[in-house]
Design a protein around this nucleic acid. Structure first.
Lengths: 225, 225
DNA sequence: ATTAAGTTTATCGTATAGGATATAGGATAT
DNA sequence: ATATCCTATATCCTATACGATAAACTTAAT
């Protein structure tokens, strides 16, 4: 896990702070650092083998992105678990942005992106045989890729960045409640893909709306268990 | 301008990094640091009288929020000026979020918020006599307050935060092109206020849509000058 | 037994020194 | 005259030492 300084130039070109950032980001996404738990600078110094400065800089960036919070003279912690209130707000926002983006994507769709989306879809459908843990983790990654690729084609980078940012929190939430949400989503994605194939903006918008609304219903059960 | 360490406890309770953050944020918003210009750590050390660590931490946070960018072994710079492309994307996003929020705000409107919005509106209309520079600066602040107050009542904090974040970049843009956009906006705000007063969601949504679309047209001229 | 005060420890916050790199300017060779 | 190489400087990047604070633990008194 330690960062190998012997890599020399290639590593230093990016800067240690960037490396530390990537490591911490990944740990947060994989829940190796549980939501709400403390993150001490000294521990990271020992664990990663770098000095405090790049670690503080990386934590500062994560703080700016809302993934960690800081209390004066207490230190950093991973951001707390998403609340039910926040969950509802997140889906309201997705419903405003993604159906619109799906429409745009349908109108701008290229054959390259379409085949790329089909490949993602194929990979998803082949996950059924894997173990539950591995399956869910892969599914989450592929689902993120599907939506992100669509947003790239839709053409509004600001919307794409905004949702990518929110997706991080969303992802952490989903990982905690390992709901079995894989199979249904595949059918819904197929409907979206079909609309993309026909360059049918109306159909794409509606299909995406259905997809997100149903996703919300599926995950909402996690709060009631 | 220097941070007074003699303030002692009160200052330290917030942490120097937070103080530095506030100072830099304000400088960026007031364009005391022009878009794209270099921000050197050493200069800030001398100017603010604090060590490098809190400055780096503050810069890291600003980087996470997209207000500054960093190049390895080169240093930090203020984020570059918004492009025409980005400008279009920003308004597309606003048109997706703010009319919807205006509808929600109309349905949830309270008498307290309504009178608060009216007070903002009154202040705006009284700015006409001031000097152009002071007038514009005050107008921008009041316009931001108007939209933010509406978003607070609308109820979705995530949308509010998202737009507040974007508003920073938007504000910097407007400040550079000191377009004379004050008078028209006042009339458009009045239409929104009227819909709020009647708790008329449809009217509020449409009025906000018109307001943002016209605002876009007014500012778009800045790119063509 | 419980509470409160004092002490200890872990951690953050700050400062300074030294090494590494990129950029700019000048000198030299063609 | 131009292009290339070299040198110098400003700046970032890293490491370490020291001070300040808050939380945890222990001890003693009621």
């Amino acid at each position: 896990m330690a960062i190998d300084r012997a890599k020399g130039v290639a590593l230093r070109a990016k800067g240690l702070a960037d490396e530390v950032y990537d490591v911490l980001f990944k740990k947060l996404l994989l829940l190796e650092i549980p939501a709400g738990s403390r993150i001490t600078v000294d521990n990271l110094v020992r664990e990663l083998g770098v000095s405090q400065t790049p670690i503080r800089e990386a934590l500062g960036r994560l703080e700016g992105e809302g993934l960690v919070v800081k209390a004066h003279f207490v230190g950093y912690s991973a951001a707390p678990q998403i609340s039910r209130q926040k969950f509802g707000e997140l889906y309201e926002l997705r419903l405003l942005l993604e159906p619109f983006s799906a429409r745009q994507a349908a109108l701008n769709m290229t054959s390259e992106t379409l085949s790329s989306l089909r490949r993602i879809e194929l990979e998803m459908s082949e996950l059924g045989n894997n173990k539950r843990q591995a399956r869910y983790s892969s599914f989450a990654r592929l689902d993120a890729a599907f939506h992100d690729e669509m947003l790239a084609v839709a053409g509004n980078e600001l919307i794409r960045e905004t949702l990518a940012h929110l997706h991080t929190h969303f992802h952490i939430f989903r990982l905690i409640f390992r709901s079995n949400v894989t199979e249904d989503a595949i059918n819904e994605h197929a409907a979206i893909l079909s609309a993309f194939d026909n360059k049918d903006g109306d159909a794409a918008e509606i299909a995406m709306q259905v997809h997100i609304a149903r996703s919300r219903e599926r995950l909402l059960q996690a709060f009631q268990e």
